[in-house]
Computed example of a mutant assay.
Amino acid sequence: MQLQQTHKFKTKANFFFVFLCIFFFSMHSSSIFSQKKYVIVIDAGHGGKDPGNLGNGYKEKNIALKVALNVGKKLAKKKDIKVIYTRNKDVFIELWKRGDIANHAKADLFVSIHCDSHNTNAYGAGTFVLGLRGNKKNLEIAKRENASILKEDNYADRYVGFDSNSAESVIGLSLLQEENLDRSLAIASLIQNNFAFKLKREDRKVKQDNFQVLRETIMPSVLVELGFLTNKKEGRFLNSKKGQAQMAGSIVDAIENYISNLKLNTVVDTVTKQSVVDAIEYKIQIASGKNKLATKSYNFKGLKDIERVKVSAFYKYYYGGTSNYEEIKKSLKKAKTKGYRSAFIVAFKNGDKISVSDAVKMQ
């Protein structure tokens, strides 16, 4: 009887000890991540010698800057947010430099702000994330924004082979930001929903296209088209203090919600990592497109054991598969020597895609 009571006491004590460990670890995790400074880079499109579009006599560069400063001023009031501007005055900043600023700051989010134009009376706000290709209308927007490259002093050397008027150059096959696509889509959706439902702006949806400024960043990134300066009514709205404050407020609200979700997910993931050993697998994504190719080596420059996975309307092609990070780096090197210059590492946890950095930390 005494032995049984002793056993029960030890069992209860062990359970209580484990409970306390989880409780204090959770509290400690919450404390750590509540203290983290989230770096947000706000990019006002165009500037200096590049005015952007001049619909109805308004200058895109001026409106984009005023909204960007408005966004930054509101975000800077938050203790857990650090704001960095790619420009805070009327100066010309090369597209590559904008991304470089965000990359060096190890930013958590990059938001590029623009105004749209069209030869019709089009109107409405839209938000873009990096993607392989869009429809013809999206392509024209990308071409206009990417044309800023031509105003850079050394653009021919920095963007070898890039032609802002070429569909092939604009669309490309660069998938280096695929890892951040889910988070980019998340913040883009929050921004777009605020435009459409809170401000009742015409909803031009979240879309994907190949904006050079988004290609230069290595973190979740979005490009916002506030509206059309070529539409008289919308142009007046965007040029007004009220319009700029409302659009900025919608962006700020979305970013704050995005960060709150990041905090929650980070704490949950951290606790999970301490208590569960997950199966991690690395692969090399070498291509993605709408064409369904046979996974034969002759279709992939001699690479064998290619895996084809359908995601929505696209097919993704993976090479190599290992739980060893050092091995997958060797596979990446091999894929690039075969000509897949834009190939990159992806990671999966129990079959679900996660960031490579998270996978490495887990292991």
Results as ranks from 00 to 15, higher is better:
G243M: 11
M362N: 03
V111R: 02
K200A: 13
D203K: 07
V346T: 15
K77F: 00
E60K: 05
R201P: 01
A102V: 04
K12H: 11
Y85W: 04
G289N: 02
S189G: 11
K353R: 15
K233R: 08
A294C: 00
D269G: 12
I84E: 03
K151E: 08
G48A: 07
D163G: 05
A125P: 00
Y38E: 04
G235E: 05
I93N: 00
G339P: 07
E326T: 14
R144E: 05
E326F: 06
T266Y: 02
D90M: 11
A359Q: 10
E327A: 10
P220H: 13
Q5F: 14
I306W: 03
R236P: 00
V41D: 06
K59A: 09
I93C: 02
G351D: 08
G52Q: 12
V129Y: 12
E60T: 09
S323P: 09
K137R: 11
S342D: 12
N146Y: 08
A196W: 12
V213I: 14
V39G: 03
L173R: 13
A254M: 11
I22D: 10
K78L: 08
N138S: 12
F92L: 08
D203G: 05
L223C: 04
N291L: 14
A107M: 10
N265R: 13
L95Q: 09
G55F: 07
D80L: 01
A186T: 07
K330G: 08
I218D: 15
V271H: 06
Y38V: 03
K77G: 15
V268T: 14
K82E: 15
S342R: 11
H46A: 05
K232R: 07
N70Y: 06
T230L: 03
L238T: 05
V18I: 13
T272Y: 12
S148R: 07
K73R: 13
T272R: 13
F17T: 11
F300R: 11
R98S: 09
G320C: 08
T11F: 13
E216C: 07
E140T: 15
S312C: 00
L293W: 10
I259A: 02
N146C: 05
A147Y: 15
I255E: 07
I84M: 05
K338S: 09
F344S: 13
K304P: 01
N265I: 06
V91D: 01
E202L: 11
A44Y: 05
A245H: 10
N138R: 08
D50M: 04
H28Q: 08
R87Y: 06
D358A: 11
D50P: 09
Y155A: 10
V160G: 09
I149Y: 11
K241G: 01
V252N: 02
E140A: 13
N154P: 00
S221E: 05
S331R: 14
G45F: 09
S174M: 03
A125H: 01
P51M: 10
E145S: 07
T337L: 11
N324C: 02
L54S: 11
A254K: 09
I187D: 03
Y38S: 02
